[in-house]
Design a protein around this nucleic acid. Sequence first.
RNA 1: GGCCCCAUCGUCUAACCCGGUUAGGACACAGGGUUUUCAUCCCUGCAAUGCGGGUUCAAAUCCCGCUGGGGUCACCA
Length: 517
Amino acid sequence: MPTVRTRFAPSPTGYMHIGGMRTALFNWLWARHNGGQFILRIDDTDQARNQEAALGPILRAFRWLGLTWDEGPEVGGPHAPYYQSQRGELYKAAAARLEADGRAYRDYATKDEIDADRKQADREKRPYINIRRSLELSDSQKAAYAAEGRTWVLRFLVPRDQKVVLHDQIRGTVEWDAALLPDPVILRGDGTPLYNFATVIDDAGMQITHVVRAEEHLSNTPVQLLLHQALGNVLPTYAHVPYVAAPGSKEKLSKRKIEQYRNNPQFRKMFEKGDEVFPQLGLTGTTALDPVMVEYYERIGYLPAAVLNALGRIGWSLDESTEIMSLATLIENFTLDRVVKAPAGFDPDKLYSFQGHWMKELPLDEKLAGCLPYLVQAKLIIEPVPAEMRQFVEAVIVALGERLKVFSDILAAAYFFRDDYAVDEKNFEKRVRKTGVPAHLAAFRQQLASVDPFTVPALEAALQAYCEEKGEQTGTLIHALRLSTTGQPVGPGVYDCLVLLGREKSLARIDAALARV
RNA sequence: GGCCCCAUCGUCUAACCCGGUUAGGACACAGGGUUUUCAUCCCUGCAAUGCGGGUUCAAAUCCCGCUGGGGUCACCA
């Protein structure tokens, strides 16, 4: 058995699609599971755009998730270059070989001609295939075309007398009638290759053993199989995984439909989180992040472990009950035969639940390291962060406990870092501006001034003693205290809040709250 | 429309290959308990084999048809 080699071949689009990431993960997992290699190859046969900028976010996503590539951009490898735009000679040579063998032909047909043929086929309700008029051309006609500078494309001559059979690792045996396949263009008028052709050359040249890709490529497969056959290549094993669908649907998750997704009930919360967080980070306008992009989750403060776990469970399962899986568990157990055939909807709720789990597992120092950049970027603290501030942030994180689901949740505790924090007016009305409450608050405030030490147990004892003496519910004061010192109806334990704020600031905030009653 | 793929709770899935389970788990949702907030945690509940034939003692499971959903039909990838 040769070493397993898989590849992921993104086109530099300027962002990494979450569905594409899942496909990449499956490739990566299969390679790692077998101790093989994972290759990153850039499909930029069509690009005239700024490649560096468009590729950056894609590599960033792989790095963020920790999916290393053995060969590809930046790391090179024995089959370099890994950019299709730099492999032109290889394609031209292969194309020339096909042409010499009579397996490809120069097609002089114009766009209009082909369009007309297509319409005609449509009218006659028969499938369109090329009429191949160029094959009939005499040498003098060809010479005449050449003289007038007429361009041609190179088409693969589909052998129409056979059936193409694919033994797909996931879908089983799929069969096509080659007689129904149009002759694909393999070289454009300018001599550059098309995806379908370049892929075949590269998969063979880079000795890819397993082509694991999304099922939308299934219909490209017969042509690729024929091309491999014509070139005398050893066939790779194919595995077409289902595409990732929009939440709650069977439709392919697509960036073009992003505006529709805002109204998707399962997606809505994810959009809202971004709307809430990104402005605070100064990430607006041109950055245009959305939940189809991997970067969206990174920026909100999701953990790679959570995203990986969620992606690994879309269309794949380990057994009848395992849900929580680390990357190591995924590597150990991943096999293609357990990939589900039906498309699966991306489930933001489930991702959030995985996130809760992995965040809970994260050591405190890593939580701190994850949260600090958010506070800095939101200008709640300044860099370099002094040691005392780091300690303070750490204490806030401890107080937040499992309320901190994603790193950006630290921003909800902004009131620990600034005095002009937002006040929830509705709850202030309900918990503070209420008969009898201001008086109790004022009275307890006096006790607060002398509670010593200013610690959670001491504060709790003081409050309980006060309430017992006055015959008041502790909840009354707890809520009033929380609203007046943090402005929020929810948050860490109120004694934790007071201690974190410190005596001085607590008293000042209570005074301010009393003043605005 | 042609070609191709797919079909179990609202969602992600297990069981299907090698027919016999009270059709299991998780998320979400609902209710209860703990925490005088919220989050966590614990318990309980809700909830599925698209339809029709066939094979068989027995079908989610095998076969056929239908219906439904989806993908793809470029000098895009």
